[in-house]
């Protein structure tokens, strides 16, 4: 029996080594460290899958994940490699087949959002759809979108009632949503010490989760309360995991990482509407390409009374509120 165990151990190790055919100092170091780590686990777990630190394959994959570059600095090959690792990890840890995309921004596209304050009735369908789509933590009830019940005359969601739970719409009140404004001149990007958060060419402000050190400077810098922090390891029921993911979007986050609305990058880069805009039952949410003069968002900007929240701060948001 012991002999068999040993044999399977060896088999697994050689299998893991096979995909790494690059040579070079970095690869060599990685291999050496990994081999040492596997040896270590073999001692700890007695070569029994899955042990305290997970199976050996899982451990090796996680170890390799520590040495990857910032998403923007990765070559295409490195991106594919990390995506393969992440997909395999999801399979090993949760037994789900996720597809992680690394789709680039389309040329000639700048995403913008319009929120119709008159039309929103506070049904909160958008919030629910967002939670499902983006695999948000159910344990701490993380939500990217907040809807505020506002008294007439109030102009900023800070003044509204964020904790309403009553039959909506209430007569004489209006509803205003708040989420990441995807500023063109974003204060969160300036605040980030590791450059983990940055603006993509299509205007989406994203976070490279694995480069986030969890300092929460961006959370303090954001005037729109658009960022969420993972205080605990996110919990998502396996059945409810959205399997179509994007590296910068709704893939699995870890404890101690910052996350935020990404305009559903995994959907919008494919040409789909964000989950919130698709779920809205009243059509209060308009999404489109700001650089296309025939897009709906451009019609809104040119024909409706629009305003931006805290425009005086100079953050230049790409999220407009408008009234009918």
């Amino acid at each position: 029996m012991g002999f068999l165990k040993n044999k399977s151990c060896r088999q697994q190790i050689t299998d893991e080594h096979r995909p790494c055919q690059d040579s070079g100092r970095r690869e060599f170091l990685k291999k050496a460290v990994k081999a040492a780590a596997i040896g270590g686990t073999a001692v700890v777990t007695g070569c029994q899958a899955p042990g305290l630190l997970g199976s050996k394959e899982e451990f090796a994959l996680q170890f390799q994940e520590y040495f990857k570059a910032h998403y923007r600095l990765m070559t295409e090959k490195e991106r594919d490699a990390t995506i393969n690792r992440l997909e395999r990890l999801a399979k090993l840890q949760k037994n789900v087949d996720v597809q992680i995309s690394s789709k680039e921004a389309m040329p000639g596209v700048l995403f913008g959002y319009g929120f119709n304050v008159t039309r929103c009735e506070g049904y909160m369908e958008c919030v629910s759809a967002c939670v499902r789509e983006n695999n948000l933590d159910r344990k701490s009830n993380t939500q990217y979108i907040r809807i505020f019940e506002m008294e007439p005359g109030q102009m900023t969601p800070d003044a509204g009632k964020g904790k309403f739970f009553n039959e909506v719409p209430v007569d004489g009140r209006f509803y205003m949503g708040a989420q990441c404004n995807h500023c063109d001149n974003a204060p969160c990007i300036k605040a980030c010490p590791t450059k983990a958060t940055y603006k993509e060419p299509d205007g989406i402000v994203v976070v490279d989760y694995d480069w986030c050190i969890g300092c929460r400077y961006c959370m303090a810098a954001c005037p729109y309360y658009g960022r969420r922090f993972n205080w605990n390891e996110p919990v998502v029921p396996v059945k409810e995991i959205t399997k179509k993911q994007h590296y910068l979007g709704n893939r699995q986050r870890r404890r101690g990482q910052m996350e935020k609305c990404t305009f559903c990058v995994q959907r919008t880069r494919e040409g789909r509407l964000p989950a919130c805009a698709e779920a809205c039952p009243t059509g209060a949410r308009i999404f489109g390409n700001l650089l296309d003069p025939k897009s709906e968002i451009r019609f809104v900007l040119e024909n409706k009374k629009v305003f931006r929240w805290k425009e005086e701060l100079g953050t230049d948001p790409k999220f407009w509120y408008f009234i009918d």
Partner: peptide, 14 residues
Amino acid sequence: RFEKRWPKTYSRPF
């Protein structure tokens, strides 16, 4: 006219 109904979920305060 859209009918009054309960919201699907509730928001977290700031």
